[in-house]
């Protein structure tokens, strides 16, 4: 065999496809953060911008499991809600400082994701989706039935964060611009973390499992354990979105745990494109923008958004961002 001649390392240019798409991938985190910096000035309201941040984080985290590991969970509202409730309860009922409450929300969401993931990742296909749905509904009913903790049907109130102290500065958290940029720091961290995970050896392992579970197992990957880790990481990032939501609204609606919220996360992710890093964020942006605009015109805005969603799934299955990447940028 003439191994020496051909197997010499290729120049970097021959290995990696160059071009705009490669640049977009390589600098996806700084570019995303740049987009987040200007976002509030492009949208009709700062409150909408904060919502985009929150659901953007949730969907990017969700997509770690859905788009990259290939597992369709219908239960991620549980982690979103858990993050929100734990943060709210910690602040409102225990007087915990906001930053600790955020950490507790994230940790609590992680534990819940580990438990639900542990039970659901043993099953496959439609059974996996159904188990996540059922377990998340169980969590929903726990929230409903423990009103002394969660406020039950009325949701959780009474934990307004007015001021945030960062590096010795008191920041007025009621000011929408301040609020946006404080929460943006969390969103930027989440995006950086997810990008990091996708670039890592673990990121390659989950892609292998999505591509061909049997082959991945034959290659030596512990499929169950890898899925559980992906599930837990994904749920943890959704919990971060939940704590951001709690800080933003100073309120946790019971609906944040409802399966309709899980469904909305799936829809946003598909709309933006599950095959790309930033697609789910774009999906959240477009979905919430449509809700914002159409709900001014008509109370039946969900029909319009639903129709657009169906059109996308049928004709542009790569979603908005995925289609853009494959057709326009190349």
């Amino acid at each position: 065999m003439n191994s020496s001649s051909v197997a010499a390392p290729l120049p970097a240019a021959a290995r990696k496809p160059a071009g705009l798409k490669a640049a977009l991938t390589k600098y996806r985190v700084p570019l995303s953060i740049l987009a987040l910096c200007i976002l509030p000035w492009l949208l009709p309201s700062k409150a909408l911008a904060v919502n985009v941040l929150i659901y953007g984080v949730v969907c990017v985290g969700y997509n770690l499991l859905f788009g990259y590991t290939g597992l369709l969970s219908f239960g991620h509202a549980a982690f979103f809600g858990a993050g929100a409730y734990i943060t709210g309860i910690a602040i409102g009922q225990f007087g915990v400082p906001w930053y600790l409450a955020v950490l507790m929300g994230i940790a609590g969401g992680a534990v819940l994701a580990f438990i639900i993931g542990g039970m659901s990742t043993r099953t496959r296909g439609i059974y996996f989706s159904m188990v996540t749905l059922a377990l998340a509904q169980l969590v929903y009913y726990v929230a409903l039935q423990t009103p002394s903790w969660t406020g039950g049907e009325n949701g959780l109130r009474g934990f307004t964060v007015n001021k945030i102290n960062l590096f010795g500065f008191d920041i007025n958290f009621l000011d929408p611009v301040n609020k946006y940029y404080v929460l943006m720091v969390f969103a930027a961290l989440a995006l950086w973390l997810v990008s990091r995970i996708l670039n890592s050896p673990f990121g390659a392992a989950i892609e292998a499992i999505r591509e061909n579970e049997r082959r991945a197992r034959t290659c030596g990957y512990d499929v169950e354990r890898t899925k559980l880790l992906a599930f837990t990481l994904s749920g943890t990032i959704c919990a971060l979105g939940g704590t951001m939501s709690a800080l933003h609204l100073a309120f946790v609606p019971l609906e944040s745990m409802h399966y309709l919220t899980s469904g909305m996360i799936v829809m946003m992710t598909l709309l933006g494109g599950a095959s790309s890093f930033f697609g789910p964020f774009i999906g959240a942006l477009v979905f919430l923008l449509m809700e914002d605009v159409f709900s001014l015109w008509t109370s039946h805005w969900q029909i319009i958004v639903g129709s657009i969603f169906v059109l996308f799934v049928l004709f542009l299955p790569k979603g908005i961002w995925g289609t853009f990447l494959s057709r326009v940028v190349r």
Binding site: R196, I197, S200, P201, F202, G220, Y221, T226, L233
Partner: peptide
């Protein structure tokens, strides 16, 4: 990548911090 990811299984399976490249 088919072969690289198979090789990686003998080396790193749960590392989320380093760059796979």
């Amino acid at each position: 990548e088919n072969v690289r990811v198979a090789a990686q299984a003998g080396r790193s399976r749960y590392n989320i911090w380093t760059n796979r490249n």
